[in-house]
């Protein structure tokens, strides 16, 4: 099959292992494309894509925009901070107005869980979820798994630890779904207050000691503490968090093996990762960013085939 099973990419939960593998194979080809002297293909030249961001983003929006432009799509950008949303327009009205201008695809980020799922039931355009609240961030999980596959040869059978603020992280949930569908073993690690109460029902291992998690894993995906989503204090201070859960170069050097160190960004240097760890040879953080464009090109290309 060379077609996705879904019309939208709302979350990793909704797609199959075959879908993920098709996206990876297509992304391999796009990675070659973006390393050509002319990094552009004409595939989507008759498609218009709206990037609708109701929540701040730098990396994801830039990455989507580059992916769209390298596929020759026409792109319109919308961010909630300078729009009529402030004047009281509803989500559906906003998006319908954009679609009335003949837009075939919508890339959307929203602070509310399920916002893209809601839209997908009311509009015709193909929707790519670029993050909905604390729920899912499917393209990030795809590019994380793609980076593991690139570095370690495959994802199947590999051990991946997700370390940090699991409770508020959409990256964690999407990663768990993606890695498990691809046959990896997943562990989450963080302070008990930042682990969801029923996390074990997802079939992941739970570890509270970060050094043990690092020793267990082949790849560690380190997440940022999302202070902006925390209404109450989950730990006494950032300094204490760093002391117990911050990863340093010394900790990586003390392991008796090489691990792959990942971070979806933005990094809070000196909090979850020390500078010397983030810049060490273990780190594939900038490869993740490059792969992000290739993976998003693959997702947009495959979804565009059906709009």
């Amino acid at each position: 099959m060379s077609k996705l099973s879904q019309k939208h990419l709302l979350g990793i939960k909704n797609i199959t292992r075959d879908d993920i593998e098709l996206i990876f194979e297509t992304a391999d080809n796009f990675k070659e494309v973006i390393n050509r002297p002319i990094r552009k293909v004409p595939s989507l030249r008759d498609v218009t894509i709206a990037n609708v961001f109701f929540e701040n983003s730098t990396r994801t929006r830039l990455s989507f925009e580059l992916a769209e432009k390298r596929l020759s799509a026409d792109v319109v950008n919308f961010s909630a901070s300078n729009s009529s949303v402030k004047k009281g327009e509803t989500l559906l009205d906003t998006v319908n107005n954009i679609l009335a201008m003949k837009v075939e695809m919508v890339v959307m980020r929203h602070a509310s869980v399920g916002a893209p799922h809601f839209l997908s039931r009311h509009i015709n355009a193909a929707i790519v979820n670029a993050g909905d609240g604390t729920h899912e961030h499917p393209t990030q999980a795809l590019l994380d798994a793609f980076s593991i596959r690139e570095k370690l040869g495959s994802v199947s059978g590999k051990k991946v630890a997700i370390i940090g603020d699991i409770l508020h992280s959409r990256v964690a949930l999407s990663n768990i779904f993606a890695l498990q569908k691809l046959g990896a073993k997943v562990m989450v690690c963080g302070p008990p207050t930042l682990l969801p109460k029923y996390i074990h029902t997802l079939g992941v291992q739970v570890e509270l000691d970060v050094q043990k998690a690092l020793q267990w894993c082949d790849a560690a995906n380190v997440l940022r503490i999302q202070l902006e989503r925390q209404q109450i204090k989950y730990f006494p201070s950032l300094r204490e968090y760093t002391l117990y859960y911050g990863i340093t170069r010394k900790m990586l050097d003390e392991l008796n093996k090489e691990i792959v160190l990942m971070h979806p960004g933005p990094i809070n240097r000196g909090v979850e990762l020390s500078s010397d760890a983030a810049d060490s040879a273990h780190s594939v953080i900038l490869d993740q960013v490059e792969n992000g464009v290739a993976v998003r090109m693959a997702v947009l290309y495959l979804l565009a085939a059906t709009v």
Binding site: M1, S2, K3, E25, T26, D28, N29, E32, V33, S43, D46, V47, L302, A304, A305, V307
Partner: peptide, 14 residues
């Protein structure tokens, strides 16, 4: 592209 039922599968460019 977008005019066929099943899109063609890409292969390696080298």
């Amino acid at each position: 592209f977008r005019r066929r039922e099943i899109p063609a599968r890409a292969s390696e460019t080298r």
